[in-house]
């Protein structure tokens, strides 16, 4: 009949325990920085390049 096993959680791969005070999420900061740049550039492109000048007629009143 069936054997028994635990639900996998990937805990077996942990090589070291890192506590709160010894961890700086520098990789996260790098990723969100890239996201910040992409989003602000896209916004400026869509708002000030695609939207504001291109569209004629413009709703004015």
């Amino acid at each position: 009949m069936a054997t028994e096993q635990p639900a996998a959680d990937q805990t077996d791969d942990i090589q070291r325990e890192i506590g709160h005070d010894e961890y700086d999420p520098i990789g996260t900061l790098a990723l969100v920085f890239i996201y910040f740049i992409i989003v602000s550039m896209l916004w400026i492109f869509v708002y000030f390049v695609e939207f504001l000048p291109r569209i004629s007629p413009m709703v004015v009143f």
């Binding site: 069936a2 054997t3 028994e4 096993q5 635990p6 639900a7 506590g19 709160h20």
Partner: peptide, 16 residues
């Protein structure tokens, strides 16, 4: 399935 899941790891505590 040839096995049964009988145990699970508890959710680990937050860092803070």
């Amino acid at each position: 399935a040839t096995t049964k899941i009988t145990s699970e790891a508890p959710i680990r505590k937050p860092l803070s």
